[in-house]
Design a protein around this nucleic acid. Sequence first.
DNA 1: GTGAAAGCGCTAACAC
DNA 2: GTGTTAGCGCTTTCAC
Lengths: 358, 358
Amino acid sequence: MIGPKQQVNLVMPHTLKSIAESLNISISTVSRVVNGKRHVDPGMRNKVLKALEKNGYVPNQVARSLKKRSTNTVGIIIPDISEEFFSGIIGGIDEIVMRHGYSIIFSDSKESALKEDHYLRLLFQKRIDALVIATVAKENAAMRLYLENQIPVVFIDNLPHLDTSYDAVLIDNAKASQLVVQHLAGLGHRGIAIISGSPDETTGYERLEGYRRSLARLDIPLDEKLIKLGNYKEDSGYQCMQELLSERDRYPFTAIYVTASKMAFGAIKAIRENRLRIPEDISFVGFDFNDKTGLVTPGITTITQPERQIGNIVGDLIIKRIKEKDSPQQGGGSIMNQRILLEPELMVRESVKQLSGE
Amino acid sequence: MIGPKQQVNLVMPHTLKSIAESLNISISTVSRVVNGKRHVDPGMRNKVLKALEKNGYVPNQVARSLKKRSTNTVGIIIPDISEEFFSGIIGGIDEIVMRHGYSIIFSDSKESALKEDHYLRLLFQKRIDALVIATVAKENAAMRLYLENQIPVVFIDNLPHLDTSYDAVLIDNAKASQLVVQHLAGLGHRGIAIISGSPDETTGYERLEGYRRSLARLDIPLDEKLIKLGNYKEDSGYQCMQELLSERDRYPFTAIYVTASKMAFGAIKAIRENRLRIPEDISFVGFDFNDKTGLVTPGITTITQPERQIGNIVGDLIIKRIKEKDSPQQGGGSIMNQRILLEPELMVRESVKQLSGE
DNA sequence: GTGAAAGCGCTAACAC
DNA sequence: GTGTTAGCGCTTTCAC
């Protein structure tokens, strides 16, 4: 059996060269066959095909990538894989890009700007063809790498602080808060507290601003004491809720709006520990509060984001951008960026009480 | 500014060569500096470092990989990213391997053996350094690639049908079923139905066998009509439950054990549609039934798997295997494989009724 | 239709 | 301490 170099006990995979040598033909011909190119004699093609098959040849994508300057890989950086919102998006992206032969290389920044920066560099080293990122950083020094090198980037969930235009797919966060506030106000609530992510991130900013503006529009006075800022983790939701509850005498509220799922879990924990009932003692609205079981009682009224759809849209956009780069009529520089805003939905369940006093 | 070739409007990233030329020194010296190797004059090192910095040099991992025959990449193939069990495992693996400079390239087989096979080949082409897989296939033709080429593989959740030894990390599935049956029997249940995954997969097999054996051990007669086989998806859980309920007159049962989370969601839906209550009309035990909210009422008694921990253990094992391959005293062939069985836990909540008739 | 050869960007002998 | 060189496995001109 003719094969490539054999080192001590270690079998090397076959290469174009080893196949070519075994057939006494040139590498190029084998390459042509492997890639299904024309200009190969049918008889020869068959012979090569057989040898390929027999030896179990598998092309080396690393070598290909080096030559072609593209890796068929899409990088994704998200802050928390265990959030269903993000794993759903990844699933949606994978669904699309896999059809085009791309793989996903995934990194979890764990809400850390430092880690995010690290991954940004790492993925660049790996020469990903495109990047999808839910950034948590205020400054994106490493992002420069992608922009300068014309590597397509699509932002999700959170927007960057960049002075250039960019692609983004996300829901209309201000609108989401507006839906929530209108719903609550419509049921007679005027003391509406909020636990939001940091306004340093656009997501937190938009959700908070939407809340503010909606209150203003409804002529509901805004009490800054009813605004708590968390960090998206369950603990901080718990913490913020505790604070709100401990000051409830001085700064009363009848409803609480928690703008992220894990913080909502924490907030609910705090509410229960204080032996308060939802919605009797306090009305509750969540964000991305997923209940796949349909068993949560009371059902939590929540904003929902179509994560699968977001993933699909991102996938399509990514593929489009990559194709644009490859196509000759595009110099690669004049890409029109776009921001795709999806409509959030308010799923009304039973966690908000109709206030009689209205 | 001296840089690498400039094509129309497209700036190429800097290379060792371009840096070397700009400094009029050799590539090797630059390489040495980049890799922090010794045998470089301190003055020279400084000069190079400055040039590297100034030009924003980023090493090309693709070229490195080609040369070093390793990509610093771990491949993961799982059947459904939107299952928390799997996204949790991925998070756990990432946590470990990222510290060692590895990235994760992820693929979702969507419970399809065909897709799994496809990804197996694709990841091999990309020359991943190791593979983690929750297989759904009966035959793993493409797995041969990894075994023959001595690429470390760790199986999770499901075991392959291989005649060689292999590494695996999973919970003791038979034990899990035993815990469930004992718990139910202890509360007086004797009509215990089960909705299981296919016994063609080891996970389904073990859980089902564990159930069978535990019943036998407790001298509880087993009615084959109380066994339904689903495919892990929510729909099939719903379907199986409907069947069980429609035949309940003829084949009565007081408790149902659903061995996978999504099927459990479906089963519960069916139960509710039939206007039956848990646990009054029917006792329920789930598998990996995650309730992060703590709000599900009644709380569902369930087997839990420590997914984060599984991920961490897999990560450690992967790294160990990769290192073993690199170390010279190991020929790369004599790796001792191991099967790590973790203890499942039964989390008792309120979905099982104490039967008075006992 | 086939082959020779250059080169993608890097590492690692090996020479000096 | 520094440079030269030979690849890693592939694609892609360019000859013939």
